[in-house]
Write a protein that binds this DNA or RNA. Structure first.
Lengths: 215, 215
DNA sequence: GTCTATATCCTGATAGAC
DNA sequence: GTCTATCAGGATATAGAC
């Protein structure tokens, strides 16, 4: 890396473009144009477009997940293992939402993460799987402690729904504000976090659905 | 259209491929190859790739939304306007989930709808906006009747979370089964629907979150 | 309506001068 | 490390014979 920070400029530009248009629809030429660097520099610094995608994700994924685990550790040591459900959810959700207002491109990155989860057959997600799994195993343990009686199948369906709600919220800042004609403020991050935490907590605590629906 | 049903074969193949790999990553050549038709036929029948994408969506969107409105009408006339929250959610969710097991490519289509909602800056969604809006206005009225005291901003945040949960569930059949080591059965559609309805109902009914969180 | 052949452009990637 | 020039391949789209 040189003093001009070419790698950083490429990563910033790619992060922003990928978040806006998706991975497949952004060419390396658009990236170098936005970054103001030479066409060849992406292959010099990263080797391939695919490696660039992975580098974009890796750069911020570790700090994000580290912060999630740090919060969870903090709550667990403070409450001696008896962490409230809302606190576990907060540790999972808040770092991602907060990252979305950090100046250094975090906004684009969280949209990328949301996009990543919404694209099922995704080689990038496969590659990053290990990093996510460590976090989820830790959170699974914490969730199960707060919900000792929950059935395995109920738990995993609900976790899936929670990921969906998070995904779309990270992906799409504008829709709630637009549909509510301004009542929802996407820039009030504490509000977003609390809404998500409350919604997910209620969903996780809801009674087991009936076995059969008569219609 | 001819007797061989070239248009249908193209639509089926495109629907399947788009659902599997996304819009941008599928070429018209892949589509014609999968459909077993000539390269030029897409442009003859649809005019452009973008028009094909729109045609794929339009073909199934009207029946889906018609079924949603039909269910809602049925419940409202039966219960004289006093429809249970779970029934409104059922009318919104069940037709989409059920379409996912219809033989004629419905499985691919609902994944496409999920993908559509997860991609914010999407020209296709803009084009189909009108068709969705009619449905949502009807459902907004129904929801507000079952939740008369809810604040506008709480309501729209929660609708957003519900769309996210639906989106990911329609997009990604496999993750809950994989993570739960088989406890979740993606083919048990009644189970999926009931899980989603119960989760979303609990979320919609949850008490208003506290104003400030002290951490 | 179907097909072949082709036009035109853009893609990711690289070679080699500086 | 940066740049220009260029490659080989694939993209959408079309022209024109059948």
């Amino acid at each position: 890396m040189t003093a001009s920070g070419t790698q950083e400029r490429i990563l910033d530009a790619a992060e922003c473009l990928f978040a806006e248009h998706g991975f497949g629809d952004v060419s390396v030429r658009q990236v170098v144009h936005t970054a103001g660097v030479n066409v060849a520099s992406i292959h010099y610094h990263f080797g391939s477009k695919e490696a660039l995608v992975e580098a974009v994700m890796s750069r911020r994924l570790k700090p994000l997940n580290d912060e999630r685990l740090r919060l969870l550790d903090e709550y667990e040591s403070r409450d001696e293992g008896e962490v409230a459900l809302e606190d576990v959810l907060y540790a999972l959700i808040a770092p991602a939402v907060k990252l979305s207002r950090s100046r250094k491109g975090g906004k684009s990155f969280v949209r990328l993460v949301g996009r990543l989860f919404a694209e099922p057959s995704n080689t990038v997600l496969e590659r990053l799987k290990d990093r996510f799994e460590v976090v989820f195993i830790r959170f699974h343990r914490a969730f199960k402690r707060t919900l000792p009686a929950i059935r395995k199948r109920d738990y995993f369906w609900r976790i899936h729904f929670i990921l969906g709600a998070m995904s779309l919220t990270l992906c799409d800042r504008e829709r709630p504000a637009a549909w509510s004609e301004g009542s929802c403020d996407p820039d009030d991050l504490d509000e977003v976090i609390q809404q998500l935490v409350a919604f997910c907590a209620a969903g996780l605590r809801s009674p087991v659905p009936r076995k059969k629906r008569k219609r």
